[in-house]
Simulated scan of single mutants.
Amino acid sequence: MSQELLVTPLHALHVEMGAKMVPFAGFDMPVQYALGVRKEHIHCREAAGLFDVSHMGQLRLHGANAAKALEALVPVDIIDLPAGKQRYAFFTNEQGGILDDLMVTNFGDHLFVVVNAACKDQDIAHIKAHLPEDVEMELIDDRALLALQGPKAAEVLARLNPAVSDMLFMDAVSIDLLGAECLVSRSGYTGEDGYEISVPADKAEELARELLGNAEVEWIGLGARDSLRLECGLCLYGNDIDPTTTPVEASLLWGISKPRRADGERAGGFPGADLILEQIKTKDVARKRIGLVGQSKAPVREGSKLFDADDNEVGIVTSGTFGPTKGAPVAMAYVKTDLAQIGTELFAEVRGKKLPMTVEKMPFVPQNYYRG
């Protein structure tokens, strides 16, 4: 099995460090290290965690009309994205569903795009099918991607280049780290301050070892990555959002730029816009994504059915785990819209038992992005 899996440029280092490797999105990836998932999670919240996210897809769009072309595929302003800034976006289909979520950065002479590993091939085909002749897509296969996350991340990375200290949340720069040209954004998937670093593949291990040489830094695997993002209310594509889910159902209105949903010349102009804008206007959706906190200690996993007080099945959990920082089980779920109010008590079915959970506002723990 492992021989069929792809590996990142840091695979040998993970094995050397004693990582437990598992198949993930076609790659052999570290799920945890010697610390274990819970301690890795807490370490990232308290100090700094290093993640190998090189399985993600990296690409560049070149050409004067690159922003215009990409903006036609997402409900986000790309044309107005300033140089040196990054933005969260998602591809939509004609039914208003979400094909994938992605990060877009304007580096001035090109757009830098990072897509999810499991959707990489379909995303590339989707973009390619809609690009005009004067826009070129460049697939990046000679770079690794690292994420350094946590309250000590800025202090650690500034030891290699002090310029990173001046960056704010969603800023992006091309800077030198250990003699390598790295594309660095102040962003991440943990809710903590931190950076995502695109580094030449042949320099990735050197950079990783240098970062790990700091007392504040530990490797963090996929297990803690999942609990960290879930505590901070961040969706996982394929679980919490998918082609059958609209941004309105997914409570992702913040991911639709105001000019694209207000009356005016920039309104709409993306696949499924009519349906999505109608849902925004009428608030008429049958289900909503919610956050749930368990009243017992037992974690509630993906796929668990949800019931109301009268034992009617009313929804399903899409992500769930025990939140080490929250100190309680946390979950995301879709339920009938009239049950999405904060404070509603629902019951999750776990091994034949109905466990009480309460609808709570997300994120479950504070987000600590650095905004200056």
Rank of each mutant, 00 (worst) to 15 (best):
residue 196 E to W: 03
residue 67 A to G: 02
residue 156 V to Q: 09
residue 100 D to I: 02
residue 98 I to E: 05
residue 79 I to F: 00
residue 278 E to R: 15
residue 1 M to R: 02
residue 243 P to R: 07
residue 78 I to W: 09
residue 65 N to D: 13
residue 7 V to N: 14
residue 176 D to V: 04
residue 240 D to H: 10
residue 103 M to A: 13
residue 185 S to K: 04
residue 45 R to P: 01
residue 73 L to A: 12
residue 73 L to Y: 10
residue 215 A to W: 04
residue 327 G to M: 00
residue 51 F to P: 04
residue 103 M to E: 13
residue 339 L to P: 09
residue 253 L to R: 14
residue 51 F to Y: 15
residue 228 L to S: 00
residue 201 A to I: 03
residue 186 R to L: 07
residue 146 L to S: 13
residue 21 M to P: 05
residue 148 L to M: 11
residue 122 Q to G: 00
residue 206 E to C: 06
residue 346 L to Q: 11
residue 333 A to Y: 06
residue 205 E to L: 06
residue 195 Y to T: 05
residue 197 I to D: 09
residue 78 I to V: 15
residue 201 A to W: 03
residue 191 G to C: 00
residue 310 D to A: 15
residue 108 G to C: 12
residue 182 C to L: 05
residue 4 E to L: 15
residue 108 G to R: 09
residue 352 G to Q: 13
residue 336 K to H: 13
residue 296 S to E: 14
residue 246 T to E: 03
residue 126 H to P: 06
residue 299 P to L: 01
residue 22 V to S: 05
residue 57 G to L: 11
residue 3 Q to K: 13
residue 303 G to D: 08
residue 76 V to T: 15
residue 57 G to N: 04
residue 22 V to R: 10
residue 54 S to V: 07
residue 192 E to A: 06
residue 232 C to P: 00
residue 194 G to T: 11
residue 127 I to V: 12
residue 115 V to D: 10
